[in-house]
Computed example of a mutant assay.
Amino acid sequence: MEKNLFNSPQPEVNIMDSLFAEMVFDKALLDFRKKKIQKKIDQSLLDRNKREFLRLIKELKNIS
């Protein structure tokens, strides 16, 4: 007898699990964005680009 997976009952998604997964994803995305900005800040320092440095510092503060 074949098992039809399309008609089998699907487990309920726990709301708490969904919220937790969303929080983990948001945190990972925020950390990624911060690291990307920090690398750009480092480069602006190496380039002695004060305007870019100040802009990036402000951007980093806004997302922190």
Rank of each mutant, 00 (worst) to 15 (best):
M1F: 15
M1A: 15
M1N: 15
E2M: 14
N4A: 09
N4D: 13
N4V: 12
N4S: 03
N4Q: 10
L5Y: 07
L5W: 09
L5A: 06
L5Q: 09
F6R: 09
N7A: 11
S8V: 10
S8Y: 07
P9S: 08
P9G: 06
Q10D: 14
Q10Y: 11
Q10L: 11
Q10N: 12
Q10K: 14
P11W: 06
P11S: 09
E12D: 12
V13G: 01
N14M: 06
N14I: 02
N14C: 08
I15P: 00
I15K: 05
M16F: 09
M16A: 15
S18E: 13
S18R: 11
L19T: 02
L19N: 01
L19P: 00
F20V: 07
A21G: 06
A21H: 04
A21Q: 07
A21M: 03
A21V: 01
A21S: 05
E22H: 07
E22K: 03
E22R: 08
E22Q: 13
E22G: 08
V24W: 03
F25A: 09
F25T: 12
F25C: 07
D26A: 11
D26W: 07
D26E: 09
D26Y: 06
D26P: 01
K27C: 05
K27S: 10
K27N: 11
A28R: 08
L30T: 04
L30F: 04
L30R: 04
L30H: 09
L30A: 06
D31C: 05
D31Y: 05
D31W: 04
F32Y: 15
F32E: 09
F32K: 12
R33T: 10
R33A: 09
K34M: 03
K34Y: 02
K34Q: 06
K35I: 10
K35V: 05
K35R: 13
K36R: 15
K36P: 02
K36G: 06
I37M: 02
I37D: 00
I37H: 01
I37N: 01
I37F: 06
I37W: 00
K39H: 10
K40W: 04
K40N: 09
K40G: 00
K40R: 14
I41R: 03
D42T: 05
Q43R: 13
Q43M: 06
Q43S: 10
Q43N: 12
Q43E: 07
S44L: 03
L45R: 09
L45Q: 07
D47C: 06
D47N: 08
D47E: 15
R48M: 14
R48D: 15
R48F: 13
N49Y: 03
N49S: 09
N49W: 00
N49F: 02
N49G: 01
N49D: 07
N49R: 00
N49A: 04
K50H: 15
K50V: 15
K50G: 13
K50W: 12
R51I: 15
E52S: 12
E52D: 12
E52H: 04
L54M: 14
L54T: 13
L54S: 15
L54Y: 14
L54H: 09
R55W: 04
R55H: 14
R55G: 01
L56K: 00
L56D: 01
L56I: 03
I57A: 07
K58D: 11
E59V: 04
L60K: 03
L60G: 01
L60F: 08
K61P: 00
K61G: 03
N62P: 01
N62Y: 08
N62T: 11
I63P: 02
I63H: 05
S64K: 11
S64D: 13
S64E: 14
